[in-house]
Amino acid sequence: MKNLFRNIPLHIKLLLTGIIPLAFAFILALQNNQQKEQRLQLLENFRDNVVLNSYIGELCQILLTERRVSFAHQMNQRYSEAELLNQQAKTDAVITKIDEFHNGKLGDYKRYTLLNRLPAFRRSIIKDSLTVPEILDFYTPILQRLITLMIGTSEKPSFIPMLNEKISADVLLLQMSNSIAMLRSDIYYVLVNKTVTESFFEKIKTGWMGYRAMELEFLEKADSTSVSAYREILKRENTVAVIT
């Protein structure tokens, strides 16, 4: 090998001396460019997931409101049929946004999140053919599936830790909202009907323990900005824990 190199003319040696570093530089630049393209693609996917998750989160919040309105409508006609239909239309508007944005990424999400059962269920509410527990029980699995869907679509680049914490915090807050809404509905239902069973207290205690567990996880894992905002909300509402 040494003899072969010695036999190479000087101008060829000089040429090789210049070409080899350039070749290495080209290879490194190509690899770096590929990494940049991969990172850009990851960021684009992440951006789409953030938007999609925001729509799913919005749907969860508005479904919580629809459940509350449906519940109150059934209990004491606090909301008129027109108000109930208006709230349902708001829910449908968010579903339409998801339909237009996800571009097949979620597949037939209405089927596996049980949203496809919503139209028939609403007709039953209008016909006044459902009990209050049936109304409350209907929305719970839908909300749980949507929250799971949020987690499943959260492609989180490791180089953006702050956003990762924010997404995790949003998911936990939705779970907490769903949990506390169920507790309030159960308590309100008992107060209106003036009937209490022994199992009711155990149900409330179990539900509260679940909520507190999620709250502790939120305070432990969420970003500092979200935690501070949450604590401020608690102060403003003067929230007091009555079950420990």
Rank of each mutant, 00 (worst) to 15 (best):
I167T: 13
N164R: 09
F159H: 07
E100Q: 15
Q87R: 07
D108N: 15
E155V: 11
D108P: 01
H102T: 00
I95T: 13
F101D: 07
K97C: 03
N76Y: 07
K166W: 08
D108K: 10
G107F: 06
N116S: 12
I142W: 01
I142R: 07
T96I: 08
L146M: 03
I126G: 06
I98R: 03
P157M: 09
A169S: 13
E165F: 08
Q77C: 05
M75R: 12
A82K: 13
E100S: 13
S168G: 12
R117P: 00
H73R: 11
Y139E: 04
S80H: 04
H73A: 13
E100K: 14
L106F: 00
R67S: 06
G107Y: 05
R123G: 14
H102Y: 00
G107P: 06
D170Q: 14
R78I: 11
P161M: 09
E155N: 14
L163K: 08
A72M: 15
E134N: 07
V69Q: 10
I95G: 03
F101Q: 12
D137A: 12
R111H: 09
E100T: 12
E155Q: 14
S124Y: 07
V94W: 00
L84Y: 03
S158R: 08
D92K: 07
S70F: 03
S70V: 07
D92I: 00
K105H: 11
Q77H: 14
K156E: 09
E66M: 02
H102C: 02
L163Y: 07
I95Y: 03
A120I: 10
I142T: 06
F138Y: 11
V69G: 04
A82Q: 14
Y112G: 02
Q144P: 01
R68I: 04
D108A: 12
S80G: 06
T153Y: 00
L149K: 00
S70C: 07
L118A: 03
E165W: 01
A120L: 12
F71E: 13
K127M: 10
I135C: 06
R117N: 15
E81F: 01
D128P: 04
K156G: 02
L84H: 00
T153V: 09
H73T: 14
L85Q: 13
R145D: 14
T148P: 01
I142Q: 10
L114G: 05
T140R: 13
S158V: 12
A72K: 15
F159V: 09
P133I: 04
M150D: 07
R145Y: 09
M162F: 10
R145P: 04
T131I: 02
F159G: 02
I98T: 02
Q88F: 09
F101W: 08
Q74R: 15
S154D: 11
R117W: 05
Q144I: 10
F138Q: 09
Q74D: 04
K110S: 02
D128V: 08
S158W: 06
F71M: 09
